[in-house]
Nucleic acid binder design. Structure first.
Lengths: 148, 148
DNA sequence: TCAATTTAAATTGTATCAAATCTAATCATC
DNA sequence: GATGATTAGATTTGATACAATTTAAATTGA
C-alpha cells in the first residue's frame, strides 16, 4: 500500500490514528470533570467568545446540528451553558455560559497543564511546521469540497 | 487560546478537524460500494495481509474489539470476509478474505483514484514531511502512554 | 404581497469509538 | 496437574458523527 497512488490513503490513516490517540490523552484527564473531548471543545470555543449561535460553533468545529444539539443539551443539563432562542431570529439558538461554565475554564486548564507541558518538549519549529502543514491541508480539503 | 500553553489543544483540534474532513472525502466515494471508512481500512489491512487475527488488525488501526467485533460481523454479513476461530488457540479469531472481498480491492482503487490524483498535486516533499511529522507525533503519544 | 426558496435547529437512523465488564481459553509456576 | 494470572474476543453502555428528513422562521422576487 506504499504505491505511488496511496498518499491520500496513507495520510488519512495517519490523521485518523493520531487524532484518536491524542484525543484519548485529553480524555483521560477530562474524565476527572466528567467532560468528553467534544464537550471540552465546545466549551473552549465559548470561553473564547460567549453567546455564539449553534451555527457558529458548528463552523468553528466543523460539526453540524445533528452532533451539536444533543451535546449542547447535555452541557445544559450539566449546568455549564444555557440555550436561548433569539428574539430577533427565532430560528437561531444562542449559547450562553453559566457561572459554573465560566468557572470550569480554570479547572480544565489546570487539569491539562501536564499534557501541554509534555508538548512543550517538542521543538517549537517542528510543531509550528506541523500545525501550518495541517492547516493548509485542511483548507485544501475544504476548497476541493466546494468544487465537487 | 493561542497562549504559549495551548499547543496540544491547538494541534488536537487541527487533527480532529482535518481527519474528519479527509475521511468525509473518502466516504463520499465509498458510498457507491456501501462501505464505510473504517470498513475500508479493515479491508485495506487484509488486502495487505490476509488471515490476520482480530488482535493484529486492531494493532494496525489502533482499534479494540469493541469496535472491531461488530464491524467484522458486518463485513462478514456483506460476504467480504469470514471469521474463523483458530484451532490452535480457541481464543483467537482469524479473518479471511472471501473471493468477493478480494475482488473488491480493484473496484475501491478505481473509485478512489480521483482522490489520490488530487493529492498528487501537493508537492511531494511537503506531503512526505507532513507524513513524517505526524508519524513521529504518533510514536511520541504512544510512548508517553506507556509512561502514564 | 405572498408563494417559493432558503436557512437554522431538531429529529431520526446507522455506524462508529472506547471504557468497563464478562467469558472462555491459555499460560505460568510451583 | 491444579490454580491464579493473563489474554483474546464479545458484550454493554454512553457519547459522538453524519446523512437525510422535518419543522418553523425568515427572505426573496415576480
Amino acid at each position: 500500500m506504499s504505491d505511488s497512488n496511496s498518499s491520500a490513503h496513507h495520510l488519512s490513516l495517519l490523521l485518523y490514528s493520531s487524532s484518536r490517540l491524542l484525543i484519548q490523552q485529553f480524555q483521560i484527564r477530562l474524565n476527572e470533570l466528567n467532560l468528553t473531548y467534544p464537550q471540552y471543545l465546545v466549551m473552549s470555543v465559548l470561553w473564547e467568545e460567549d453567546g455564539l449561535l449553534v451555527n457558529k460553533i458548528g463552523q468553528k468545529l466543523h460539526l453540524d446540528s445533528g452532533t451539536l444539539t444533543p451535546l449542547l443539551k447535555k452541557l445544559e443539563s450539566m449546568n455549564f451553558v444555557k440555550r436561548n432562542r433569539s428574539e430577533s431570529d427565532e430560528r437561531t439558538v444562542a449559547i450562553q455560559l453559566t457561572y459554573p461554565g465560566k468557572s470550569l475554564q480554570v479547572k480544565v486548564l489546570e487539569l491539562l497543564k501536564p499534557l501541554e507541558e509534555n508538548f512543550s518538549e517538542i521543538e517549537n519549529p517542528e510543531l509550528s511546521t506541523l500545525n501550518h502543514s495541517i492547516k493548509s491541508l485542511l483548507e485544501r480539503i475544504e476548497s476541493s469540497k466546494n468544487r465537487n
